[in-house]
Amino acid sequence: MSNKAPTVLETHSLQVGFRNRAGDKVLFEPLSLALNRGELVCFMGLNGAGKTTLIKTLAGIHPPLEGVVTTTQSVAIVLTEKITGTQMTVRDLVTYGRYPYLDWWLTLSAHDQAIIERAIQQVNLSAIADNQLSQVSDGQLQMALIAKALAQDAAILLLDEPTAHLDLNNRVEIMNLLRNLAHRAGKTILVATHELDLALQTADKIWLATPNKKIITGVPEDLVLDGSFDSVFQLKGFDLKTGKITHQAYRPLSIALEGSSHEFLWTKNALERCGYKISSESSLHLAVGINKEQLHFTISAHEATHTVSTLKELLEYLAKVDQ
């Protein structure tokens, strides 16, 4: 789908970096990148790779060393920079999105007000719209900043680490919101993040900043399979191909596990986490199932069977057997 969508922002041999007396500090090799309409792109890379500077350059608020950013559309940004004005309310912050359209006395038309209210609703902040920024959580502040960008009515949204310092629930909420905005409202969205798991599950495309100052672009799964992520992040104990932390079996006991669906997966998780090896050749059989809406785990070895109903009991029993 993304192949057919029109390109809304392009860079041609763009050099990003800082210019000072000692000379240019170039952050990337000359970049030729493109963002297409209705696409959610996650921009990943190690800390200090220059993600923030590239985003600012794309937004036109940081001058490029060389090259150009061409876009026919307006760009709105969400940054990590601190906002002063603790007496500012959520609605005040969202109102800033209308500033490009307002006169010097900031007169809001009914149309402006409708857009502001809609943006607040889109991020589910209506209940706290009149709260001061000092009273809202970090997640709510991020949502308010996204609402500000939405009120700006821009076709392109560039976000710098919008999920940093948030808990899992808030991170998922924000990524889902961004995905919906891209797919349903046709916004083009670039998110700088280092949340690997979330990016893999939500992004249409990944921009991956490599240590040798290049940016690899591609569909997330392709980059997983060709090992690009591994080489950039030097993953330590996280198996990207299964999406899980790798476990070393440190107990002598191996278990042949039978079962299906969630119960099977979580039992496997518990056993591997505790250092048991899962092997279909083991003589120790464990069957997981549900009988009359009640979980049961049946362990059978050499004709003897034992049944428990929670994983805690199961693990305690196995620990005894292991000794």
């Binding site: 600012k56 937004a59 036109g60 002063t84 500033y99 307002l102």
Partner: peptide, 19 residues
């Protein structure tokens, strides 16, 4: 008034808002 309000957001946001 517009410029002063913009200053509260910092230079990057303000510039993006056309100030």
């Amino acid at each position: 008034v517009k410029v002063l309000n913009g200053m509260l957001l910092g230079e990057s946001y303000a510039t993006n808002l056309g100030i």
